[in-house]
């Protein structure tokens, strides 16, 4: 077989010199993502003591470390579910055109840019015992003494909602806008009420978008780190798994344990994502009328 012929045969299957354009991007991802990840997995199997699985055994044997998984899920799952569940009705109401829509979406994007650190600082000021929130409630005589909302579970939860909700909302709004509105009108022509139209037309078409949004919001909430330290209770109720990983790798300098915790974190996160995407595949999968 001559060289030219081989090149032709490859070109027929879509392999030609243009694919070289992919190489820089692939090289970066391989060198900066795949290799470190593989290196980390390798490192997690080489602890100083305890054999191949020693680092994992250390993590799972210690209740203080093991419970970080439950703590993280206990924070990120409710936050992600709330963010998605609250976004659906609001986005459903806002999918058409109306005056001020662009302004409202702009305002809703603001918290994304605040970042977790500023949100934490704001929460400490605003929800703190002498902050405006508690003052207002006390002035209205709803409560008699300040509610403790920072430096515990709720501080972190609020920070997750503030940063996560706008993100979930924008994604769901764009998925909803991608659904062909004529489908719903056709259903209305055939006599379907509002409730039926939402349940039998919009919701099934939105399901893939909901699953994707949930996954992305969950990833955001699952990797909570700065707010868990700053507005949370990093030694107790909000000791999330990323704190455990950071502590092991950069404060104790036990890189194998740090990598092992990072691997456990990735596995747990991917499991949740897999469950959600698995549930989604039971429902309708196909075009929603828009391009997405």
């Amino acid at each position: 077989m001559t060289r030219v012929a081989l090149r032709h045969r490859l070109a027929e299957r879509g392999v030609d010199r243009q694919l070289w354009l992919l190489v820089p991007g692939l090289a970066c991802v391989l060198a900066l993502f795949v290799y470190p990840f593989a290196y980390g997995i390798g490192l997690s199997f080489q602890p100083a003591e305890g054999g191949v699985l020693g680092a994992y055994r250390t993590f799972f044997a210690d209740a203080y470390q093991r419970d970080t998984i439950a703590t993280t899920l206990g924070l990120s799952l409710p936050a992600a579910i709330l963010n998605v569940a609250a976004s659906v009705p609001i986005a459903y109401r806002m999918r058409g055109r109306f005056r001020g829509k662009r302004l409202l979406t702009t305002i809703l994007v603001v918290p994304i840019t605040l970042g977790t650190v500023l949100t934490a600082e704001g929460l400490l000021n605003y929800l703190g015992p002498a902050g405006w929130f508690n003052r207002t409630l006390m002035a209205l005589h709803v409560i008699d003494e300040p509610v403790r909302l920072t430096n515990n579970y709720w501080g972190v939860f609020f920070s997750l909602v503030i940063t996560g909700f706008p993100f979930a909302f924008l994604l769901i709004l764009s998925y909803l806008s991608g659904i062909d509105p004529t489908l719903e009108r056709a259903a209305a022509t055939l006599g379907a009420g509002r409730r039926q139209r939402f349940q039998r037309i919009t919701l099934p078409l939105l399901a893939p978008g909901l699953a994707t949004t949930f996954c992305l919001t969950f990833v955001l909430a699952f990797s909570v780190f700065p707010s868990a330290v700053l507005v949370g209770d990093p030694a107790g109720t909000t000791r999330v798994i990323s704190i455990a990983a950071y502590h092991a790798a950069y404060e104790v300098y036990d890189y194998p344990l740090g990598s092992a915790i990072a691997v456990v974190m990735g596995v747990v996160e991917l499991l949740v994502v897999a469950v959600v995407l698995g549930l989604r595949s039971l429902l309708y999968t196909g075009s929603t009328g828009g391009k997405g």
Binding site: L26, P36, L216, V219, S223, A249, S259, A262, E269
Partner: peptide, 24 residues
């Protein structure tokens, strides 16, 4: 290839950040 490009966005930064920083 597409999955490979998607993964870094789907993973929490801390998960790959710790091994990446170790390598760096």
């Amino acid at each position: 290839v597409y999955l490979l490009f998607l993964l870094p966005i789907l993973m929490p930064p801390i998960t790959y950040g710790i091994p990446l920083a170790t390598v760096l």
